[in-house]
Computed example of a mutant assay.
Amino acid sequence: METQDYIQNRINTNIRQYEELSKKYHKCHIGFMIACFSCFIGVVILDVIYLIVPVVWLIHASCVLILAGLFLLFFDVLNDYSSKSLEYKYKANLLCYEKNLYQAKQSGFKGFAFRCERFM
């Protein structure tokens, strides 16, 4: 298989796939963090309203929001979405490095490519 075909068929498709997975996991992580933050802000707002209008269901709603926020936080931590996002981003960067290495070898920078391979 020629170098250009290998880059187009294997490396570029894997780079795109890893970048898409990285974006997907990053969006999941950010979504869970926004949901947790919203739940906890809702608790603060309900507690302030409870000071003005003492109604028991506001305390019950605060308890439910605290439990929902903790559930979302632990769900995100247990699934480790931020780490998965960084892992796929790292793999995409490694493949970009490999692609540049193949292109350097092909264009005649064999000494440079050899030095890069040693540190890879």
Results as ranks from 00 to 15, higher is better:
M1Y: 07
Q4G: 08
Q4S: 12
Q4T: 13
D5V: 11
D5W: 02
Y6R: 09
I7Q: 00
N9C: 09
N9L: 11
R10D: 14
T13K: 15
T13H: 11
T13N: 11
I15F: 04
I15Y: 02
R16P: 00
E19A: 13
L21V: 06
S22L: 03
S22R: 02
K23Y: 00
K23C: 00
Y25S: 08
H26Q: 15
K27C: 06
K27S: 15
K27Y: 07
C28V: 04
C28D: 04
I30C: 01
I30A: 07
G31T: 09
G31S: 13
F32D: 14
F32G: 13
M33G: 09
M33I: 11
A35Y: 10
A35S: 10
C36N: 05
F37T: 15
F37G: 12
F37C: 13
S38E: 10
S38C: 04
F40H: 00
F40D: 04
F40P: 02
I41H: 00
I41C: 07
G42F: 05
G42Y: 06
V43A: 02
V43M: 02
V44P: 00
D47Q: 15
V48H: 07
V48D: 01
V48N: 08
V48T: 08
I49Q: 05
I49G: 06
I49K: 05
Y50S: 08
Y50H: 15
L51H: 06
V53N: 14
V53H: 14
V53T: 15
V53E: 13
P54Q: 02
V55F: 06
V56Q: 12
V56N: 12
V56L: 14
W57A: 07
W57F: 10
H60M: 10
A61I: 01
S62G: 15
C63P: 00
C63F: 11
V64N: 09
V64I: 14
L65H: 03
L65D: 09
L65N: 05
I66V: 15
L67E: 04
L67D: 10
A68C: 10
G69P: 04
G69Y: 08
L70N: 03
F71H: 09
L72V: 07
L72E: 10
L72H: 07
L73I: 02
F74C: 09
F74Q: 09
F75P: 01
F75R: 01
F75L: 11
D76W: 03
N79F: 01
N79V: 01
D80K: 13
D80A: 12
S82P: 12
S83F: 04
S83A: 12
S83Q: 08
K84L: 14
K84F: 12
L86W: 09
E87I: 07
Y88K: 01
Y88F: 15
Y90Q: 07
K91F: 01
K91L: 15
A92I: 03
Y97W: 08
Y97N: 14
K99M: 01
K99I: 01
N100P: 02
N100Y: 08
N100G: 12
N100C: 04
L101I: 01
Q103Y: 03
A104S: 07
A104T: 11
A104C: 06
K105E: 03
Q106H: 13
Q106D: 07
Q106L: 14
S107N: 06
S107R: 12
F109D: 09
F109K: 09
F109E: 12
G111F: 02
F112E: 15
F112P: 00
A113M: 07
A113W: 01
F114G: 00
R115V: 03
C116K: 11
E117H: 02
R118Q: 14
R118G: 05
F119E: 14
F119D: 13
F119W: 08
